[in-house]
Amino acid sequence: MKRLIKTALLRSLSLRTQVRLAYALLNNVTASASRDDAHLLEWLFAKVDLQQVLLEDRIRQIKFSGRVIADGAAPGVRPPLQTCLMEDTSPWTQQARISDANAIPGMISEEEGQYYEYIGRLYRGHGEVIELGPWLGKSTRHIIRGLDKNPEFLGRQLHVFDDFVWRSSWMNRHGDCEQLPDHADFHHLFEKYVHGIRQRLAVTRGKIVDYDGNEDLAQIDWSGAPIEIMYVDCGRTLQVNEAWYRIFSPSLIPDISLLIMQDWRTHRERPRLSYNETHWFTAAHPELEIVHEVKDGGIATFLYRGKR
């Protein structure tokens, strides 16, 4: 009974107060800890660390969600963007659920699929649309579904870039897909799964940086044409994100271009992983302003605020 009462009291406190109490407890235990207390300290640190993630989420949501922002839209073209971060009810989750893309092996959540279909409807025809890292094409199908509902995309193609190098250590774990040898070319699998929309795609095989089997491929480049939307799922490290940004950022349109960062929310994962650096990347670029963040998945979207 005493334990239940203590738990109820703890849950009645604000998240910020819970974090403060946890830090105070951690400091007290640390001051008198012995080697035998190591497991307890690790457990306490994990609990505090998780509460810190939730606190940062809530601060970000309060600070940024629900704002109307000027995004360079011409009057009458569409309403200004409204920010929405981790809300239970969002514009994209109000859409009807689509099941046909679920037959494709993939690594995106249902909400992320809904988001891809939603964001394509906001396209205005100011520039090209790019996807970096489609894997087998599940995200690609959702992206095309959204863009195809937009008359501004009529006659255009989605530009898709990937090195199409199979990494068996983690790719074999996702879905009921074919199992390929390590470093095999899986371009044929992508072509198989996007067959019905292939004419809507301009596909390029190449690398952004040298990585695990792609060293012999040519580095991707870009024509210089203006870019309105980029869907980015090509890696989480600062190195790879800075590399694609150097290639494509000169073509981004200030106050119009949207960057959909598939792995942005991975900085929240616990235990921490050293390669989850996408959050650091956006923090290093103040010209990227957060607009949307899903609740279930890794996506956050940024409006490019660079100089004209």
Rank of each mutant, 00 (worst) to 15 (best):
R3L: 04
I5A: 02
I5T: 08
A8Q: 01
A8V: 06
R11D: 15
S12G: 15
S14M: 06
A22R: 01
Y23C: 12
A24W: 00
L25Q: 13
L25W: 12
L25C: 14
A33H: 13
E42Y: 01
E42C: 13
W43Y: 15
V48W: 14
Q51M: 15
Q52N: 11
E56N: 13
D57Y: 05
R58K: 14
K63P: 04
F64D: 06
G66Q: 09
A70E: 15
G76K: 08
G76N: 09
V77E: 15
P79H: 07
T89M: 06
P91C: 02
W92V: 05
I98P: 01
A103N: 05
S109T: 13
E111I: 13
E112P: 06
E112V: 12
Q114K: 02
E117G: 04
Y118S: 05
Y118P: 06
R121C: 11
R121T: 14
R124G: 15
R124A: 09
R124Q: 15
E128H: 09
V129R: 07
V129P: 12
L132D: 02
I144W: 08
K149I: 00
K149T: 06
K149P: 04
F153P: 07
L154H: 15
F161C: 09
D162H: 10
F164L: 09
V165G: 14
R167M: 12
S168A: 13
M171I: 00
E178W: 10
Q179S: 13
L180Q: 03
H187A: 07
L189R: 03
E191M: 12
K192Y: 04
Y193W: 10
G196C: 02
R198L: 03
L201W: 00
G206S: 02
K207E: 02
V209E: 11
D210Y: 01
D212E: 08
N214L: 01
I227L: 11
I229M: 13
V232S: 10
D233K: 06
R236D: 14
R236K: 06
A243N: 12
R246D: 14
I247N: 05
F248G: 00
S249Q: 05
S251A: 15
L252D: 03
P254I: 03
L258F: 10
L259K: 04
D263S: 06
W264N: 07
R265Y: 14
P271T: 00
Y275D: 09
N276V: 01
T282R: 05
T282E: 08
L288N: 06
E289S: 13
I290F: 10
V291R: 13
G297I: 02
I299A: 01
F302N: 07
L303C: 07
G306S: 03
K307A: 07
R308M: 06
R308K: 11
